[in-house]
C-alpha cells in the first residue's frame, strides 16, 4: 500500500460515523473591528502602521509620482533603479525621467532569473513595483507579481519602492480578498508586504534588513 493510501485509510477510519462540521464562518468577526469610514481614514491608518515598521510613506498623485520618486532616490544617492517597462507605471516612469534628463539608470528585468542572478543580487540598488491593493487594518501592500514584474523585484534589491493607489486600499484583508475575488484565480505567487524585512531573532531586538529590502518606500497615489 502506498503511503498515501495508508494515511487516507487511517484518517477515514478515524472519522467513521461522524459528520463534517458545518461552516460557521462569521465574517463580522474579522471585519467589524477593522472598519474605517473614508479613503482618507484608510490612508491615514495604513500610513501610521507602515511608518511604525520603518517604512517611508509619501502621498503624491498620478501625475507627480515619477518626480517625487526621483527626488527620493537622488537624496539617497541611488545610482540605478530596476523597473518593469511593460507596465503602465513603468512606461510612465521612463518617459517622465527621460524628459527631465535623469541621472539614475533605469534597469529593466533582463530575461530569466538564471541569466542575471548575480547582477540582480549584487548590482541593483533599488526597484519599483506596483501593487494591487492595500490593507488599512494591518498596514499592508498586496503585490501580485507577473511576467512583467517578477516575484524577486520586491525582495532582492535593498530598497523597494511600491506604488499604491489610494482607492485600492481596503479596510481589512477579508474585504480585499473578497472584492478582488482572489479565490477564483490565484497567481503563482501572491505577496502581502508590511514593511522592509526584519528580524528579532537575537535577543528580540528588532533589526531591519534581514534578508530582503532594508528599506521600503510607499508612494500613495491619492487621486488614483
Amino acid at each position: 500500500m502506498s503511503a498515501r493510501d495508508g494515511i487516507m485509510r487511517r484518517l477515514r477510519a478515524g472519522l467513521e460515523g461522524s459528520q463534517p462540521r458545518p461552516d460557521e464562518f462569521d465574517a463580522t468577526l474579522v471585519t467589524r473591528t477593522w472598519r474605517y469610514d473614508s479613503t482618507e481614514a484608510r490612508v491615514e491608518r495604513l500610513t501610521r502602521l507602515l511608518e511604525a515598521v520603518h517604512t517611508e510613506v509619501h502621498r503624491t498623485t498620478q501625475g507627480d509620482w515619477p518626480q517625487r520618486l526621483y527626488e527620493q532616490l537622488r537624496t539617497r544617492g541611488i545610482p540605478n533603479l530596476l523597473f518593469a517597462p511593460e507596465t503602465p507605471h513603468g512606461s510612465q516612469l521612463s518617459k517622465a525621467w527621460e524628459v527631465n534628463g535623469s541621472e539614475i539608470h533605469l534597469t529593466p528585468w533582463d530575461g530569466p532569473i538564471e541569466e542575471w542572478k548575480e547582477t540582480l543580487f549584487n548590482d541593483v540598488s533599488a526597484s519599483l513595483t506596483g501593487s494591487v491593493g492595500g490593507i488599512a487594518a494591518t498596514g499592508t501592500l498586496a503585490i501580485w507579481p507577473d511576467r512583467h514584474e517578477p516575484r524577486l523585484m520586491s525582495l532582492v534589491p535593498p530598497l523597494h519602492i511600491a506604488l499604491l493607489k489610494a482607492s485600492t486600499i481596503a479596510d481589512n484583508l477579508y474585504d480585499l480578498m473578497q472584492t478582488q475575488d482572489w479565490a477564483s484565480g490565484m497567481p503563482t505567487n501572491l505577496l502581502l508586504v508590511s514593511g522592509p524585512s526584519k528580524t528579532a531573532d537575537i535577543e528580540q531586538v528588532l533589526a531591519y534588513g534581514a534578508h530582503g529590502p532594508k528599506e521600503l518606500i510607499t508612494l500613495i497615489l491619492e487621486d488614483a
Partner: peptide, 24 residues
C-alpha cells in the same frame, strides 16, 4: 506569536514559474 498585527511577509505560493514568467 509575536504581538504583530501581521508579519512582514505573507507568501502565498500556488504554483511553479509559468512558461512566460521570468523567476520563481
Amino acid at each position: 506569536a509575536l504581538g504583530q498585527p501581521i508579519t512582514t511577509y505573507i507568501n502565498m505560493i500556488s504554483g511553479p514559474r509559468k512558461d512566460d514568467e521570468r523567476d520563481g
